[in-house]
Design a protein around this nucleic acid. Structure first.
Lengths: 243, 243
DNA sequence: CATATAAAGTTATCAGACAACCTTACAAGG
DNA sequence: CCTTGTAAGGTTGTCTGATAACTTTATATG
């Protein structure tokens, strides 16, 4: 399919989404103050020139994002600042250096804790998954796609081994973001050269988990993350609590 | 349409949200495979015993959360694993003891890290917010609603002080869940008696943040969390990394 | 003055229709 | 055999109008 570029035909995308975006902008930029009541659905429908269904769907979307709250028989209100708690994270620019740094900063304590908990709670199935990921890592000729997948699998297996469902949820989300950013940054070239080192670090973590030593597992994970960070030219504060 | 049919969904709270939750569960638990097509809106409406509008809103919600994708004229599909980008967490049973424990377990490393980072990066505005929360905490006669709000505000201010947008996002989300669970558990009676102790713990954290000592801030937060956990009859493993 | 009741306004839900879009099948023509 | 046109059917997107549920406010009633 190598044809002329007809993609220019901007098919108007999802009406409710566009309207939700517009109303959301009004709120975020303060033209609709926090706590203030939005116009009624009827009025919004008329001003936007669409049906009430579309407006309703738009409002539902905003409510889902935590930007508005609706009360039947009363109206829709812009959510107060303090209560805006949506865990929705926009797919921002993957090359955003600061966002990347912040994500990594968040990841570190979670992964370290996960390593410690995994060392205590891991089952034999967990250990099998860890070894499987390590094998795939070793099998990968270079640090290509497969290596990245294996890396994700390793950390996911570790998070699962905590026996705490929230760890795979959170760390998986973060790790995926990070690895995506790395991929788009084309840092692969750099990584290819140090596969052996990376694998060695993972093996240390695995051994600690196997032997059931949480302190050692945490230490191994900490050093893995800091070294990986330095390979990515990240500068991070890391604290080690004495005694 | 005259007869009662109690097999259908009870109308206690927002219908679309509940249906979205149910369909979402079907997807997350694999009963609807990734990439598979969902039943048509008409069919879903009939099986749930609601109108198509409600089903549409439910699907819109799921689409918002990145769990389904819709294509006009074709259908709605469960999104492939790789493309799922949002963190979806069920509003589970607040009294679920295990979920509560797991949430707390996740919270600990995050809050500790946040305390350390806050000690390094806090601005004067951050410190003002911390003190404001502390004042409200002190002002509260008993550990009532107001005290809980102040507690949340304190931890939110601390997370904001990290200058890392992800910390308030994640910790705020978790903390709110936890406090909700506590409220519903009617543990207020217990808490009322130890307000002074709780406030004192917060003051120690604040002082460490003010003096810019990350290690001390972490230590203070750690002890606050572990003691709060013991007041809630939670047993947690905590690891302190030696040197 | 307190309480009950009515009225009006708003969101929630329902029902049915048409529009826009996609897929498929099949016929027509090369 | 292959390509193209056409029709049909199914699905989501949008519209319209109505009813139910809920809240607030005003009014009447004792």
């Amino acid at each position: 399919m190598v044809v002329a570029d007809f993609n220019q035909i901007r098919r108007s995308e999802h009406l409710p989404t566009r309207i939700a975006a517009q109303i959301g902008r009004e709120i975020l930029e303060g033209r609709i103050a926090a706590g203030e009541k939005l116009p009624t659905e009827h009025l919004l429908a008329k001003t936007f020139g669409v049906s009430r269904s579309v407006v309703r769907e738009a409002i539902a979307q905003l409510r889902n994002e935590g930007l508005v709250e609706t009360r039947q028989g009363v109206g829709a209100f812009a959510t107060e600042f303090e209560r805006r708690q949506s865990l929705r994270i926009e797919h921002g620019d993957p090359t955003d250096r600061i966002a990347f740094h912040n994500l990594y900063q968040l990841r570190i304590p979670l992964e370290i804790e996960a390593a410690g908990l995994a060392a205590v709670h891991r089952t034999s199935e967990d250990l099998a998954r860890l070894d499987e990921a390590l094998e795939q890592m070793t099998g990968a000729e270079k640090w290509t796609e497969q290596g990245i997948v294996a890396d994700l699998a390793f950390h996911r297996a570790l998070a699962t081994a905590t026996q705490n469902e929230y760890f795979p949820l959170f760390t998986g989300f973060i790790a995926e973001r990070i690895s995506l950013a790395i991929q788009t940054a084309r840092a692969n070239a750099v990584l290819e050269e140090i596969v052996e080192v990376t694998i060695a670090e993972h093996v240390v973590i695995r051994d600690a988990v196997v032997s059931g030593d949480p302190v050692e597992a945490r230490s191994a994970m900490r050093s893995h993350l800091t070294q990986a960070a330095s390979r990515l030219d990240l500068t991070l504060e890391t604290f080690r609590d004495e005694k």
